[in-house]
Design a binder for these strands. Structure first.
Lengths: 250, 250
DNA sequence: GCCGAGAATGAATCCATCC
DNA sequence: AGGATGGATTCATTCTCGG
């Protein structure tokens, strides 16, 4: 398999994540921001008045909520657990994994994480620090979440760090933004510390490539996988710029 | 039914939450911090008493055990959905609910919330701002979570506020702390704003009574339910002190 | 009052040991 | 493919107290 891009320990493969993951070995950390598949198809139904919708017993309410409304969640569960399982097979015994998710998919993501064979060890919070749409009459949806864990026992000796559980960083805006759901470099750099220094980080959903840029800056090797060629190009460009920046500093 | 305590629109009932909830009507908000039944990876860890489970060092201050904290995930799901369902039947059409949980029980809590017939609308974050136990080799467990939603459509006109999605407040420490799992008054006051001004807040798990104190300070009526008489006493005492403080200010 | 040193603390977790 | 119990370990942050 030939990488789309390669330089200074960072590779990008253009293709499907399953195909590439099956060919990989020696992963120390899976750090990624997969498409959330969020936003309910049946939101109108879900937000109806449940008291009028379910006049009878709550048994009916239970079936409505857990029956047909969340079919897309079911396939999200299956899909995430499949590639997480593929990643586990390519991982070292003390590997770490960290997946982004939003509030709506958080329970499904923790299920998928464990269904894929990983040990779930906690939740990190990315606080967007107020730059979120206000929600009148309720709590502002101001955070995204990082489901994290390991492929086996935590080997704290290999990487004796402790990163904060709530990371505050404003969302990427305006002309800097290359991708709809782009994460701040600060947040991805923070997650890269979960990987042992010099270790191999894999991101199966490169997008605009922020994980790869962060991995490079923090002195880890990285392999990214991306299915859309346009994104491969953007990520490669950012990596090249990043190297230029680094050489200027040196 | 006779309240254990009553003053200035705040009542405490000493008893089981199911019994009292069935007798109630007209709830505008359910705001509560139930026992999480969390702690540890193994069943043995969960079934320990709460002081052994949650208190590590030889503390000077004595803090009481609290009950109902050793359900497994299945029964936790069933138990939460049952009292949430009872609360729904006692609630007004545009009622709000907000439940505390930790990372481990978050997915079960969102299931139970919906199984009880409520519409899940998001997750709030209580950021303990650093004073949490470090976790070597991983992400610090620095937050607890608030699962929130409503009994039906959100009525933003009745209460046109929007509270932040990440609430930062240090944990309660030292001699001020009356309960192992006590929440900061600042956090509970924030949540009380979800209830329409003058509305009725119900807390089925009073503990040390922080929700009730916050409700009083924010000008809402409140009914608390608590099964342990020792906690009823602590909460009543705090409420009386609160009223004294208020009168001194006035 | 301000600063620094030392002590205390935490809605844990992991593991050895015992029954 | 056991289950319960207790003890060791962890360190950033907060608290206490003396100078």
């Amino acid at each position: 398999m030939k990488p789309y891009f390669e330089a200074n320990g960072i590779q990008i493969y253009h293709g499907d994540c399953f195909e590439v993951l099956h060919a990989l070995r020696g992963i120390d950390a899976v750090i990624t921001d997969p498409p959330y598949s969020s936003g309910g198809q049946f939101r109108g139904d879900r937000t109806m008045n449940t008291v009028t919708k379910y006049v009878q017993t709550n048994q009916q309410a239970f079936r409505a909520e857990f029956g047909g409304d969340n079919r897309d969640q079911r396939s999200y569960l299956a899909w995430v657990s499949l590639w997480m399982s593929a990643a586990l097979h390519a991982s070292n015994p003390n590997a770490i994994a960290a997946l982004f998710t939003d509030w709506r998919q958080l329970p499904t993501t923790t299920d998928a994480f464990q269904a894929g064979g990983w040990v779930w060890r906690g939740i990190g919070v990315w606080d967007k620090t107020g730059a979120a749409r206000p929600r009148l009459g309720g709590i502002k949806s101001q955070a995204e979440y990082i489901v994290w864990g390991s492929s086996g026992p935590l080997d704290a000796d290999a990487n004796p760090i402790c990163i904060p559980g709530v990371l505050s960083a404003p969302i990427v805006r305006g002309t800097d933004k290359e991708h709809i759901a782009e994460k701040p470099l600060k947040v991805m750099s923070w997650l890269c510390e979960l990987c042992r220094p010099g270790g191999l980080i894999v991101d199966p959903f490169v997008g605009s490539g922020t994980t790869l840029v962060a991995a490079k800056k923090s002195g880890r090797r990285a392999i990214g996988i991306e299915i859309m060629e346009a994104n491969c190009e953007i990520a490669a460009k950012r990596l090249q710029q990043g190297f230029l920046d680094l050489s200027e500093v040196a």
